[in-house]
């Protein structure tokens, strides 16, 4: 395994360097075993392209998103104010993150509290790298594979990012197939609004099963997504449906890292 170069802001500061972009890893990206692979995949791409980035490391803390969606505005604003102090202290201008929940909160809810940054989801960031000619994707590994993209609610409907993920998938020379409920009509994985962290209310089905069934109907080789929580829900769904040998679930960053053999 190649060494990952992951400078922290503190190290950058100490050596009087300034990164072009801060990679906001997020709690899932830092601690969830499956999401950590997404984090590593993105870092591999950033290292490979030579992007001058840094992370906050132990100075990063939850954006407060789950607290806010669950109704705990106090805790959210406490977290936000703490993070803004750190971010502003480092004079951060641009942030990229692999988590649509962090993305939404940093981009939309922090400015009013004094945190103004250009915030990008990694799908947008990678698309920009491609547009600037810094990143090229070798399609070979996924040529002809059937890939469906599950729109994360906080990326799609919440922030109208529908195209960037699809552009990336198309660059893989893969066959992009859409679920019936996609883009503005995308169907939730069941994790948002604090549901990730608690049992669902009484019903006749789990939300992630409903969504996984829809994806399985297309008989895809891969379900792609761009959110660590969607990743968990879809992975669980596919396992419960006994399809984990036929259908793999990958984040966009992982697809690109694999395609480029990183």
């Amino acid at each position: 395994m190649s060494e990952l170069k992951v400078p922290t802001m503190a190290e950058m500061m100490a050596s009087e360097q300034n990164p072009d972009v801060l990679f906001w890893v997020g709690c899932a990206g830092s601690f969830d075993d499956r999401a950590k692979k997404i984090t590593r995949a993105l870092v591999k791409i950033l290292n490979n392209v030579g992007v001058n980035f840094a992370v906050l490391g132990s100075e990063e803390s939850c954006t407060g998103d789950p607290a806010k969606r669950a109704g705990n505005e106090f805790l959210f604003q406490m977290q936000a104010m703490g993070n803004i102090q750190v971010l502003n202290g480092y004079e951060i201008k641009k942030i990229v993150t692999t988590c649509p929940h962090c993305f939404n909160t940093l981009k939309n809810e922090y400015p009013e509290l004094g945190g103004n940054y250009e915030v990008l989801h990694h799908s947008e960031f990678l698309q920009n790298l491609i547009n600037e000619g810094k990143l090229t994707i070798q399609g070979g590994a996924f040529k002809g594979q059937k890939i469906t993209f599950h729109d994360p609610c906080y990326l799609g409907r919440a922030n109208d990012v529908y195209e960037a993920p699809r552009v990336l998938i198309e660059k893989l020379d893969a066959e992009l197939v859409e679920m019936k409920r996609c883009k503005t009509n995308g169907f939730c994985c069941g994790a948002g609004g604090g549901q990730m962290f608690k049992e669902a209310e009484k019903g006749n089905k789990e939300v992630n099963i409903e969504r996984t069934e829809e994806a399985i109907e297309l008989k895809p080789d891969i379900i792609a997504t761009g959110c660590p929580f969607c990743m968990t829900m879809m992975t669980d769904g596919v396992k419960l449906k006994d399809k984990e040998t036929e259908i793999k679930i990958f984040d966009l960053a992982e697809l690109i890292a694999k395609a480029n053999d990183l």
């Binding site: 830092s30 601690f31 132990s58 705990n72």
Partner: peptide
């Protein structure tokens, strides 16, 4: 939810991991 609130408050993540370990990945 009470659990995740406590975790976020104490260690900056909804799960019980130490903030100091955020770069272990």
């Amino acid at each position: 939810w009470t659990g995740i609130f406590t975790n976020i408050e104490n260690n900056g993540a909804p799960w019980q991991f130490a903030q100091a370990d955020r770069l272990k990945w």
